[in-house]
């Protein structure tokens, strides 16, 4: 079962990414348990985790948020590829931090990035998905952590 400090590692990693990359911390909204279909925004960076814990962590964000984030990072390229790159990097960084916190036996895949509303998110049997809304400026994204 997911422990609080583990969940916090993912959450803090996410908010810290915003703080570090865009000099403006993200806040987290009211967390809840996922029921039914995953809530997906325009771009989703997914990382499969195996080893000590099995499951997925994904960061999904609307195009508008990523655009502003890129702007804050002084990017001028708002292309599709740039958006994909950004969510992938967020997901990768979050999980990398987690791996550092949890040790070597946390095996993390290279992020796969999906655009659109139907990504193939592998369901981990027996793992409930925690949805943590990530609010940044006027935008909202979601961090979903589903680990056994």
């Amino acid at each position: 079962m997911l422990r609080e400090e583990e969940l916090k590692t993912f959450v803090d990693g996410t908010t810290r990414y915003f703080e570090v990359a865009a000099q403006q911390p993200a806040t987290i909204g009211s967390p809840y348990l996922l029921e039914g279909e995953p809530a997906i925004h325009d771009y989703t960076g997914i990382i499969n985790i195996s080893g000590k814990r099995e499951g997925v962590v994904y960061f999904t964000a609307p195009r508008a948020m990523l655009t502003v984030l890129l702007m804050k990072m002084q990017e001028s390229d708002f292309s599709h590829d740039s958006m994909r790159d950004l969510v992938g990097e967020v997901a990768n960084t979050i999980s990398g931090n987690a791996r550092r916190d949890f040790g070597h036996d946390f095996v993390i895949s290279v992020p796969s990035v999906f655009a659109g509303d139907k990504p193939q998110i592998p369901q981990q049997p027996g793992a409930r998905a925690f949805v943590i809304p990530i609010h940044w400026r006027s935008h909202s994204a979601k961090l979903v952590v589903s680990l056994t």
């Binding site: 990359a21 890129l70 990072m73 002084q74 990017e75 390229d77 590829d81 740039s82 790159d85 950004l86 992938g88 990097e89 990768n92």
Partner: peptide, 11 residues
Amino acid sequence: DSNIVRRRIER
């Protein structure tokens, strides 16, 4: 491998 990280370092 990330374009964003590359530009981030550069900037």
